[in-house]
């Protein structure tokens, strides 16, 4: 159906917000059930069948909690920080195509939009830590900044590699260029980028680090810094940070799917594109959770060494290799 543009846009944005909210709630459920199974226990089972109403109960609890704003915090920044975490994620989702037609706004510079808004996340966590006037929060904020800056670089180098092969920054077009059988997906295009699977892996690791997920969760390392930058937040303030974290994971995995795994292209051509997109995205999200519950945390300097001394050389190498391959073949 062809709705007039403003109504279509609003419908999409409402849909996106619902999508983010629903995902934040039920990804938490999936994480708790999944971690339970990894740890040989059941996870939530009481509320609703198999604990499916648990996220609802948790949301009600968070909404009804008192929003404690400690008197010594910087009022404006303290209240602004959670918003700054969640808004960029939602905006990024507006340019992500879920299928050929399901995209809120297909911008030519879609990829750049996602990364520009993604870098606001660093500022938001920094603000949260700074505004809290709490030593643990400030240490955590400092760590987040070093970590995110370090890992943005290999991520962007990888994206440049993709850009070189696809020649466009529009996310829909990147997916369309991967049309055809599954060996047309960017991860298998060894004729353009001989180290494509390595590139995917680098992107995935950087995405884990950017979203502060374990084993790169030094910033909110529970056993050291209590809750890190968000120690002073309670009730829905904490809830919004949580939603923001899962929204960022969503954006990251969606991007990985679009750039490497062919987005909504289906390998067997039977089911609608949106189904394949969501399937690939959720497989990657499951892997993110799996990794979290399996490995211990690295030390902070090992983390930074990994980025500066290992990932950046590798991504530079793939960049150069791709350039040579494209020029010669």
């Amino acid at each position: 159906m062809n709705l007039p543009e403003p109504i279509r846009l609003v419908a999409f944005l409402v849909g996106l917000m619902a999508f983010v909210g629903f995902n934040a709630a039920y990804l938490v459920w999936a994480e708790r059930k999944g971690s339970g199974r990894f740890q040989r226990r059941l996870g939530p089972t009481e509320v609703g069948f198999a604990g499916l109403l648990q996220p609802i109960a948790d949301s009600i609890k968070l909404l009804t909690k008192q929003l404690l704003v400690p008197p010594t915090v910087d009022g404006l920044l303290f209240r602004a920080a959670p918003l700054l975490v969640i808004i960029p994620a939602m905006v990024s989702l507006a340019v992500i195509p879920f299928s050929e037609n399901l995209v809120a706004r297909d911008l030519h510079l879609g990829l750049l939009v996602v990364f520009s808004f993604g870098s606001i996340h660093v500022l938001a966590v920094m603000l949260a830590g700074w505004a809290s006037r709490n030593k643990y929060a400030i240490i955590s904020a400092a760590r987040v900044v070093s970590q995110n800056v370090a890992y943005e670089i290999p991520m962007l180098l990888v994206v440049i590699t993709i850009l070189m092969t696809t020649n466009t920054t529009s996310l829909s077009e990147i997916v369309q260029k991967q049309a055809g059988p599954f060996w047309h997906w960017n991860i298998f295009r060894l004729d353009q980028n001989p180290l494509a699977p390595v590139t995917f892996l680098v992107f995935y690791i950087c995405m884990l680090a950017e979203t502060n997920r374990a084993p790169f969760d030094m910033a909110e390392a529970e056993s050291e810094l209590v809750a890190g930058a968000i120690t002073e937040y309670s009730g829905m303030g904490f809830g919004v940070f949580f939603i923001g974290e899962y929204a960022n994971v969503l954006v990251g995995c969606a991007l990985a799917t679009l750039l490497f795994l062919g987005g909504w292209q289906s390998p067997i051509g039977v089911l609608p594109g949106a189904f394949w997109f969501l399937l690939k995205m959720y497989v990657l999200i499951f892997a993110v959770m799996w990794v979290r519950w399996t490995f211990p945390r690295t030390q902070f300097y090992t983390l930074l060494n990994l980025s500066w001394k290992v990932l950046i050389p590798i991504s530079l190498g793939t960049l150069v290799l791709t350039a040579i391959t494209l020029k010669l073949f």
């Binding site: 740890q39 490995f295 211990p296």
Partner: peptide, 16 residues
């Protein structure tokens, strides 16, 4: 000890 280091899972195996 492993919980402190960020590995949440071995705790439950050990408690088993």
């Amino acid at each position: 000890f492993l919980l402190d280091l960020g590995g949440f899972t071995p705790l439950l195996y050990a408690f088993d």
